[in-house]
Nucleic acid binder design. Structure first.
Lengths: 217, 217
DNA sequence: CGGCGGCTTGAAGGACGTCAAGATTAGTGG
DNA sequence: CCACTAATCTTGACGTCCTTCAAGCCGCCG
């Protein structure tokens, strides 16, 4: 996770880490309003975060792939601001935040890294914030997932979506039918090839061009 | 600003504070990509933050009223991620961030406060993130501005919008014409009374009911 | 095999954007 | 004090993108 942390610091870190899992599809890592106690690094599987509003409607906030951190946004009010749900079999590293925080006071690298991760989460919301077309949103979503997998060494030409269309649609603030139609059109245009949740990139440049407006904002 | 900071700490703070201004309408507090050096507290006037994308289009990110902090989101990459522009005559307190950061290492209250302010900025984006109707967005905008003024002791029944319709529309991801139409309809429905940039709240409960879905997310 | 949930596809309707033209206001100089 | 200009704001007509509603399809598991 941190690049600028020396060896003794890493050894202290190991004391804080706890391997947990597996969580099965639909199980909760934590729930909204629970006391904030830890942040999690995904080792395997996929996690979605979501919020249920007063009318019972779900709002998908984000997806977390292997190598990414979940739960950071609970720091402020000392309780988690959303649910975290496993989308398939999920394995995690659990970091006790109390210990991490006191550690941060002693090792400047840690504190900076926390600030960095926090700030990064602010920027991610921009995928939703702008007034983008359905095409741009879906393209940006695919590119974003692909890039994050690629950063962890997975294939760059194909990927598996572990979430249903309805979750993608909800996350992108579109109707599930619209996502379906856009994927179909992308396939007809030769940009991708879709079979259920398996996606192959046949014209990655064109897809990236569509996504550019969204992701560079 | 901080409630849990004792008196000697406040005295140190005074050394970091520098009164600046006035900035006139259209003047920049800072610009995107500039080196990050300070955060600002608004003493008087209104500030908007915005981003100009590669195609030259403006994206309004937020408005800052007296008593609020601008520039926090520049912490991570060590340069400001957006422009900050005065909407009228603006007076500020300038906090050198380097000094603030070293101070934070010694006084735990400060560090917590910084984390708190950072996390708060994450949540604000939710006004834009959801798929809300134009009515809900405009209502939420008005309520949000009114509440923030109220928190500083200003009138709760009326307010002055210091930004043009186009900025409101851009911020809410709507067309300026739509904002105009919604305000007109709100007035026809007896919710508010609009005269240019002056807004009176004639049925605050009803307006708040409209905004609820947006703000409680 | 039969049912169920997720995915796809089509048709109709609505919400908002765009375009274009006025109305109002503020600011400026005579 | 008044006329003139230039933004800003409003209002209307029309088009478009996306949602909604409804039905059919596919794969999976009992």
């Amino acid at each position: 996770m941190p690049s600028g942390v020396d060896k003794p610091a890493l050894q202290v870190l190991h004391c804080l880490v706890e391997h947990v899992g597996p969580f099965r599809e639909g199980e909760h890592l934590f729930r909204a309003h629970e006391a904030f106690g830890a942040i999690f690094a995904v080792r395997g599987g996929t996690v979605k975060t979501r919020l249920i509003d007063s009318l019972g409607r779900e709002q998908v906030l984000g997806f977390y792939l292997p190598g990414e951190m979940v739960g950071l946004n609970g720091i402020h009010p000392d309780h988690y601001p959303c649910d975290a749900v496993a989308l398939d079999s999920v394995y995690l590293c659990r970091f006790s935040f109390r210990a991490l925080e006191t550690l941060a006071a002693r090792i400047p690298g840690i504190q900076q890294q926390l600030f960095r991760l926090l700030s990064k989460d602010i920027g991610v919301a921009s995928l939703l914030a702008g007034d983008f077309s359905a095409d741009e949103r879906v393209a940006a979503f695919l590119v974003s997932i692909a890039d994050r997998f690629a950063a962890r060494g997975f294939s760059t030409s194909a990927l598996h979506l572990s979430m249903p269309r309805s979750d993608i649609a909800n996350y992108l603030r579109l109707a599930a039918e619209t996502v379906s139609r856009v994927l179909r059109r992308f396939q007809d245009q030769g940009l991708i090839s879709v079979a259920g949740r398996e996606v192959k990139f046949t014209a990655p440049q064109a897809l990236r061009a569509l996504a550019r407006n969204v992701l560079t904002t």
